[in-house]
Design a protein around this nucleic acid. Structure first.
Length: 546
RNA sequence: UGGGGCGUCGCCAAGCUGGUCUAAGGCACCGGAUUUUGAUUCCGGCAUUCCUAGGUUCGAAUCCUAGCGCCCCAGCCA
């Protein structure tokens, strides 16, 4: 018997973020690092978020620092408590330690507003009263510099009273916006006086109707980081152009003594791209609303809630994150890598069971009618310490339709007339033929597993079975990828065969409330869910692949 | 088109203050061994080459120059 696999211990490879952290630490810039995972509560967490979560929390753990879970709830129109709850749930499930207390950008609204007044009085921000269209027009484009707003030169006294009026709800939505005063001619579009506060009469899921104005992400995020004393603010590549503003803002505010140094540093990495999955929030919502799937936690969904029901494990995700690494080069990861990580972990933790998914009957003609035996079956062939269980054996069994053929192709070594095969953990049988949909064979009594004669007859094939009389019928959901296209971007790419619900015959030990992950031998890993089993991932198969 | 990034084996990815790089590791793939899961495990193989072309140097994936390719930016979204 093989030794249990040793836990794969990938020498945690280095990456550019670790270099920055290590040099900051050795330069004593920080005594300990603090990172953060800052989702907007406007949807369910998906596979892409897993990379970010594992990166941020992983770094904190590796360097003995900490990592905050912070909701970036600055746009009340899109955000809901339902999302907050599901996000917390998923983050915990992934095993991330955020100290048990989630933080909220909305808790800093007062401080942010105070900072805004400072910016206005120090001449670094102004209230613009152009329409959105005018602002857009005056921003210019890649080749043309923007032009200053006619309101750009308002006095700071006027700006301050206008800002206060905005805050006090004296102006309708869209009539004014607070802008940072930087450079309308900057080559970086983000520095052409970015909007930092807008008037928006929307009820916030936490602050209710207290605020008629809300800070923009661009403005809020750096302040959130600084307030929480984040040392390394890790985000995805598309925010690179935002970094100059991040630094500009924080330095102004630190100069004004509104924030403390050392200031957080933004670092960008490439987001996860996976083949065959779609992570666009808009389309994910469409899948749910148009009932292409059964909710956000449908096991086919690329959400963490769905992955969990599918049977994916947090440890599997950790291995995945370790495998794919972190860099600034856009990556396109094949979905099979994720599956392989799950398979690798499940192989270590899933007890083995027998289940016939596509049953046909097999009758052992020379086995006494009415006789039953209990076979000792190991719960995990590589882990004898997991013990054995007893599985009833009798004259009539279910076997897998695929395990019999009357016209064997070259290389096929399972059941066909004249061939011998072992009924796993039981006897070797010889196939006599096939009649009325029933496979007939004779068993060799001396070959019972575990007895001295077990190996007296050598066979290549080894198939699983379930005693017909003792079988436990159950619903099993076989999942395939949701999208057949490698890079799906519309519902037309949906795989019509992504779900196949069947009634399977399981060994009776699978009945009842036994939970968690199991391996159906020779099939794959399955997760008990809602009265049945979900196929998490199949076993590797070098035969049908040929 | 202006700006910001990125380009090392089929997919990721170390290396990038020049020599120990005829380039680490993982996945995939190809052998071969073990195996009562065509699974697992084990052992072996797998880039004279680092987007291209020049240059600097005794010596370059690492420095310089010029190209090429891909990604991101013109929300009162995040």
């Amino acid at each position: 018997m093989n030794k249990p696999s040793k836990p794969s211990q990938p020498a945690s490879t280095s990456n550019f973020i670790k270099h920055v952290i290590e040099s900051d630490l050795s330069a004593k810039k920080h005594i300990a690092i603090r990172t953060r995972f800052p989702p907007e509560p406007n949807g369910y967490l998906h596979l892409g978020h897993a990379k970010s979560i594992l990166l941020n929390f992983g770094l904190a753990k590796e360097y003995g620092g900490s990592c905050n879970l912070r909701f970036d709830d600055t746009n009340p129109e899109k955000e809901e408590q339902e999302y907050v709850d599901s996000i917390i749930d998923s983050v915990k499930w992934l095993g991330a330690d955020f100290g048990g207390k989630a933080l909220y950008a909305s808790d800093y609204f007062d401080k942010m507003y105070e900072c805004a007044e400072y910016l206005v009085t120090s001449g670094n921000a102004y209230v613009d009263s152009q329409s959105a269209d005018e602002m857009k027009k005056n921003r210019g484009d890649f080749t043309h510099p923007g032009v200053d707003s006619p309101f750009r030169s308002r006095s700071s006294a006027e700006n301050l009273s206008l800002l206060k009026e905005m805050k006090d709800g004296k102006h309708p939505d869209g009539t004014h916006v607070l802008r940072a005063k930087i450079d309308m001619k900057s080559q970086n579009m983000n520095l052409r006086d970015p909007a930092i506060y807008r008037i928006k009469r929307a009820t916030h899921h936490r602050t209710g109707d207290k605020w008629p104005i809300y800070p923009m992400y661009t403005y809020a995020h750096p302040i959130e980081d600084a307030i929480e004393r984040i040392t390394h603010s890790i985000c995805t590549l598309e925010f690179e152009d935002q970094r100059p503003f991040y630094d500009w803002l924080l330095n102004k505010l630190a100069d004004g003594k509104l924030l403390e140094r050392p200031l957080p540093q933004q670092i960008e990495f490439a987001r996860l791209n996976l083949t065959h999955v779609l992570l666009s929030k808009r389309l994910l919502i469409k899948l749910v609303e148009d009932k292409h799937v059964d909710g956000w936690d449908d096991p086919r969904m690329p959400t963490l809630a769905g992955a969990r029901r599918r049977g994916y494990t947090a440890e599997g995700f950790r291995r995945f994150a370790e495998r794919i690494g972190v860099s600034k080069a856009n990556q396109m990861i094949d979905y099979s890598i994720l599956e392989d990580c799950m398979r690798e972990h499940l192989n270590e933790i899933a007890p083995r069971r027998m289940a016939v998914l596509d049953p046909i009957k097999l009758v052992i003609e020379n086995y006494p009618e009415g006789q039953e035996e209990l076979m000792d079956v190991p719960n995990h062939p590589q882990k004898p310490e997991w013990g054995k269980r007893q599985v009833p054996f009798s004259r009539e069994l279910y076997i897998e339709r695929e395990d019999f053929t009357d016209a064997p192709e070259k290389g096929y070594f399972r059941l066909f007339p004249g061939n011998k095969v072992r009924l796993r953990y039981a006897y070797v049988v010889e196939c006599e033929g096939w009649h009325n949909g029933v496979v007939r064979c004779r068993y060799l009594p001396e070959t019972r597993s575990g007895t001295p004669g077990a190996d007296s007859v050598k066979v290549k094939g080894n198939i699983h079975w379930v005693s017909k009389k003792h079988a436990h019928q159950s619903e099993v959901r076989l999942y395939d990828r949701l999208f057949s296209a490698e890079r799906p971007d519309r519902t037309e790419h949906l795989n019509p065969k992504s779900l196949n619900v069947i009634q399977a015959q399981l060994e009776r030990n699978l009945a009842g409330t036994e939970a968690g992950a199991v391996q159906f031998e020779r099939h794959g890993y399955f997760m008990a869910d809602r009265g049945g089993f979900n196929r998490t991932v199949t076993l590797r198969d070098s035969w049908t692949r040929q």
